[in-house]
């Protein structure tokens, strides 16, 4: 009995240690984000909260127009998610509920896109976006990401689990395919869609390389690039302000993560089953 108790204590201890180690960078960032430049610069570093929290957060917010960047990132995330989920739903519906010529070929074509992540085609993708005058626009940051093999596969898996009887019954009732899609299939797929939304939100929000290349003006920058701009090499690094900016930038994805944790778990599970 005692041994089990000790064992449980030990597990608690190990878990608490793990939590502390994993949280350490962010805890330190939180502390530094309250310090003045002089407090930050002191060596050895002071590890107590400073007196400059409000100023740092305001400076970070104003310094690189973080508010605008958060709006941009949000618009882009939802723009991508909306298009991606809609198009994937339609495509998955086509693949699961119809027999048609070239079905396997088209499915294969979608499969091939798994081999083409952005970096592999970035050189010419950049030219395409440029010739469309989409550099520095929402379109350039949103539309290229609307097609997703992963989302289509996940939805195909989900659609396949819908009992055939539902289709037969709908046909009997004289439903058109689209009526069936909206009235029967979509409601059944709600939690999968939720999971896709959450997973994609984090994914798009955290994107870096493409927004770095495809935006010019401060009005179009996204938060991730804003972090680098806060640390711009042509100016000084005031770590208090930078960490304040980092904390602000973390909040939206963490909020989504905390509030929608169950959707997350589901999304992850789906990912590995694709």
């Amino acid at each position: 009995m005692r041994q089990t108790k000790n064992k449980i204590m030990g597990i608690h201890l190990l878990l608490i240690m793990s939590v502390l180690i994993i949280s350490l960078p962010v805890i330190l960032a939180l502390i530094i984000s309250t310090q003045t430049e002089a407090q930050v610069m002191s060596y050895p570093p002071g590890l107590i909260p400073g007196t400059n929290m409000v100023n740092n957060y305001i400076a970070a917010w104003n310094g690189v127009n973080l508010g605008r960047m958060i709006i941009n990132s949000t618009i882009i995330a939802f723009g991508v998610i909306f298009g991606k989920v809609t198009m994937s739903l339609l495509a998955a519906f086509a693949f699961t509920h119809f027999e048609f010529k070239g079905r396997n070929f088209l499915f294969g074509a979608i499969l091939v896109t798994l081999l083409l992540p952005v970096p592999v085609r970035i050189v010419a993708l950049f030219d395409v976006i440029r010739s469309m005058h989409w550099i520095d626009t929402y379109a350039g940051l949103i539309i290229p990401f609307w097609a997703s093999a992963t989302s289509i596969f996940i939805l195909i898996q989900r659609f396949k689990t819908v009992p055939s009887e539902l289709i037969d019954a709908s046909k009997m009732d004289g439903c058109t395919p689209m009526q069936y899609f909206f009235k029967v299939l979509l409601p059944l797929t709600r939690s999968t869609i939720g999971a896709l939304v959450v997973i994609n939100f984090i994914y798009i929000w955290n994107q870096y390389l493409w927004p770095l290349m495809a935006t010019n003006s401060k009005e179009m920058r996204v938060v991730q690039v804003g972090i680098k701009m806060l640390m711009s090499t042509e100016s000084t690094n005031n770590w208090g302000v930078i960490m304040a900016g980092v904390i602000i930038t973390m909040i939206p994805p963490l909020f989504v993560f905390v509030v929608m944790q169950e959707s997350f778990m589901k999304g992850f599970a789906l990912q590995s089953e694709k």
Binding site: A29, W205, Q207, Y208, I227, M231, I242, P253, L254, V256
Partner: peptide, 13 residues
Amino acid sequence: ALSPAIAGALFNF
């Protein structure tokens, strides 16, 4: 839920 860029900023600091 954090991005690689944020991780970079934290560890740089």
